[in-house]
Design a protein around this nucleic acid. Structure first.
Lengths: 204, 204
DNA sequence: GTCTATAACGAGATAGAC
DNA sequence: GTCTATCTCGTTATAGAC
């Protein structure tokens, strides 16, 4: 039987990333410390430094994992047997799921703190935004082709608007308690891109 | 001749607020220190504490001044001899002006850091967002009445979408160099609300 | 892999002289 | 109003034992 590969994430490493991720998404990269993570895991900060030499490396690992997970979710949506509007709603629901946990999008939070980030983290944040815009562009193009979505201008431009609007909706919604504020904005945004279904029935 | 009132802002106090404001808008409330402000003004941190006993009080003063200044700008726009679409563009340009200085909206930045803020600052951030939404609601209603703007649903809901989208556009635009990213999103957003002028000429 | 111990620094804040 | 001097605490980080 094959033994564990050295590249496999140890339980502690994953637990550190989980705790740090939540802290960054709720308090920001400049709003948490190694001590916060260590306290949550009931280990010492010295143990943290064993897994991540410095906060910059921890930050790099956080974005890398987050972007990979988000990419998988996007692949899952792309593989859905559904028309583009349903996929766009599923994309919006990714953000909604994050907000439900009272979190900001990791890279949206880091975008706010952009000027204070190490250079490697900056590049990764931009990469995440680009990744989202490219995926959305393809979805929008497909929706236009199948006549289920409509928008003026280029697909990349429309994609940037959607990403910006959803990130902004999360940003301004978190100071208010629930998700109603976000859903109001997001649902309205998505409707603006959706053409009424032709064959079955009119929009209710 | 009347001597200076005690309530008048001293030059130092204003200089502190100016420096701190820029620091918060570029680096976040958790991304700057008294030492940063003191260094910029070439005074000591002890002098800062004379004007603002603690960082929380400084933060309160920052939001208060920012909201007041923003409110004045809104009054100025409301008083314009123009139709609602021009006023909506002027509103958008308020955000654009901030972004041109490579800054995030003060309260947008603070919204990201919301969970780490003192309670008085939290309340003020929400107040700022509400102030904007209420002003925009009135503008949207007026535009609908004069048939120069159109939107589905209620004016407050549409206003929240605009505020969220503009804050989000700033957020995701700052990692990219110029203002093109923002303008693409914001102009598109505003066009979606604007009805083509009836009498004179079609949109160019 | 995790600990204790500690270094080295920066942050917010205060006392008291000028 | 602003300074010097100092305090306390939190944060990042390292050395070396277990």
């Amino acid at each position: 039987m094959p033994s564990r590969r050295q590249s496999q994430a140890s339980g502690t490493r994953t637990a550190i990333l989980d705790a740090a991720e939540r802290l960054v998404q709720t308090r920001g990269f400049n709003g948490f410390s190694y001590a916060d993570v260590a306290a949550e895991l009931k280990i010492t900060t010295a143990a943290l430094h064993y897994h991540f030499p410095g906060k910059a490396e921890l930050g790099d690992a956080l974005i890398e994992r987050y972007a990979a997970r988000f990419g998988e979710a996007l692949e899952g949506i792309a593989a859905m047997d559904a028309f583009a509007p349903a996929k766009l709603r599923a994309y919006k629901d990714l953000y909604l799921g994050v907000l439900r946990e009272h979190r900001m999008c990791l890279c949206g939070m880091l975008a706010a703190e952009y000027q204070t980030l190490p250079d490697t983290m900056r590049k990764s944040v931009v990469g995440f935004l680009d990744q989202n815009c490219e995926w959305l562009s393809a979805l929008l193009e497909a929706g236009r082709s199948e006549r289920s979505l409509h928008f003026d201008g280029t697909a990349p431009a429309a994609a940037r608007m959607i990403v910006g609007a959803l990130e902004g909706a999360m940003l301004v919604s978190r100071p208010y308690a629930g998700t109603e504020h976000f859903e109001l904005i997001a649902n309205r945004l998505i409707e603006d891109f959706t053409l009424p279904a032709r064959p079955a029935r009119a929009r209710r």
